[in-house]
């Protein structure tokens, strides 16, 4: 089954239709997604700024990892659940949104950055834990994280706009290709 067929099938499920047509459920979930940004991105930014050495130089990085990261993870869980429900409510249009696709790609990169940091960089923390300005590799991870998550916020916000939707033709061929619009959509 192609991914498109999968999302088309999701769109036909009764829960998806009910979410889509509900008066308040969709707005409440979307709001929760935006509000949790304060918890998730807010704490990510604090940790990243500490990794860059721009904030609270007197507080060890491990202290941030122990006391702040659990809040980040809690925020992330809420983000993923609410975000999945938002996709579930509007499956096909979201799947064919270049901004959604860009966001997912950026999230993979952000995840890769987290994984590389925790597997390659963080294990040696005892050597630099108390440094006001941590070593270069640590700062690079912090900077990448800030740039990636900021880009994710931008691309996420743009999903709401229909500039490049498959049902708005004509679009440049590259857009139709990236969005995965079918020949029927683009009128060929």
């Amino acid at each position: 089954m192609s991914l498109l067929a999968f999302f088309e099938q999701l769109a036909e499920s009764s829960w998806s239709i009910e979410l889509h047509e509900s008066q308040y459920a969709y707005s409440v979930i979307e709001s929760l997604h935006v509000w949790t940004l304060c918890l998730f991105f807010g704490t990510v930014a604090l940790v990243d700024l500490r990794l860059l050495g721009w904030i609270m130089p007197g507080v060890p990085v491990s202290e941030f990892a122990r006391r702040v990261l659990p809040w980040t993870i809690a925020g992330f869980i809420v983000m993923v659940i609410s975000g999945t429900l938002l996709v579930y409510a509007i499956p096909v249009r979201t799947y064919q949104s270049i901004f959604f696709r860009g966001k997912m790609l950026l999230m993979v990169l952000a995840g890769l950055n987290v994984w590389l940091f925790h597997s390659r960089v963080y294990p040696s923390f005892a050597k630099w834990d108390g440094d006001a300005v941590p070593p270069r590799a640590v700062r690079v991870a912090g900077a990448l994280s800030l740039v990636l998550w900021t880009s994710i916020i931008f691309s996420g916000r743009m999903i709401a706009y229909n500039w490049f939707d498959c049902d708005r033709q004509p679009q440049p061929a590259i857009i139709n290709f990236l969005a995965g619009c079918t020949a029927a959509d683009s009128g060929h």
């Binding site: 940004l37 991105f41 807010g42 930014a45």
Partner: peptide, 10 residues
């Protein structure tokens, strides 16, 4: 909003 959230929450 996100940065404000971090600064207020901590």
């Amino acid at each position: 909003l996100g940065i404000l959230g971090g600064a207020v929450l901590i």
